[in-house]
Amino acid sequence: MTDVLVVADHRRGDLRDVSYELVTAGRELADETGGDLHVAVISGTVDEFADKLNREGVDAVHTVDYGEEFNHGVYTQATTQLYDELAPQYVLTPNSVNGLDYAPAVANELDLPIVTDTVALETDGETLTATREMYGGKVETTTELEGPAVVTIRGAEWPAAEGTGDAAIEAFDADIDEDALGTTVNGFEEVGGGDVDISEADVLVSVGRGIEEEENLEIIEELADALDATVSASRPIVDNGWLPKNRQVGQSGKVVTPDVYIAIGISGAVQHVAGMKGSDTIVAINTDPNAPIMDIADYAITDDLFDVVPALTEEFH
């Protein structure tokens, strides 16, 4: 029996997509040996979240009604207590910024090994085989470990769980030691360009070094307007201060998975590719037919972006 506990991710009233992906990843592991899938949802409107998380294959949802937003101390305490109660083989959390703020603490507290940023998982009930990347995605590796573990999963690698389950929804009475909570979350701030979340966009018009000058961004904005799309960028554009940080696609920016990603004047450095290779369809507009972006592009136009971009804008006017 391989029971699995997954811990949902939410922020400011909404479950994040990776929560449903965790359900899929957890279900796949539990299925290998006919174990149960437990979902934990900690803080916030837990009953509402629990209903949403009750998707096909979920055996139980455990709600911890304490506080509103993520606090790593609360998550660490609640998750370790749930582990003690349920004794699952694997604890799965997202490899999100918040996931990385408590999963290592849970592992250390429980004296369990941790494997982070996994992109595929298999188990025979005893040995877990985790696939992860190294060197910014240049290679993939498999890591094996015996027995229980804490595992974080990369977003957008598993499909979201669907359907409606018949999970038991149970309030878990976690004993939160308030004196041990040494951090206080005072609020949130949308940065640089308001609340645009490029990871939610269906179509991204993404611009790189090939745009040459800040004033040339105008043709990119016009194209995005014409397509009803969102503008994103590779790192040099953000480093130059031409677009805000929240438009940055890549390893130290955002991971995006739009239906269509149009890479304009982007060479496709591995750090960038790490952030967009999960896109459904990738179109590259680049004069260099040997640019690395061509390795992952589905379609390419090896022509001057200053000719192609205005012509495309014209198509949709």
Partner: peptide, 11 residues
């Protein structure tokens, strides 16, 4: 955080 949001926290 993801999505262009920063969390303001005292540690």
């Amino acid at each position: 955080l993801e999505g262009g949001v920063e969390e303001l926290t005292d540690v």
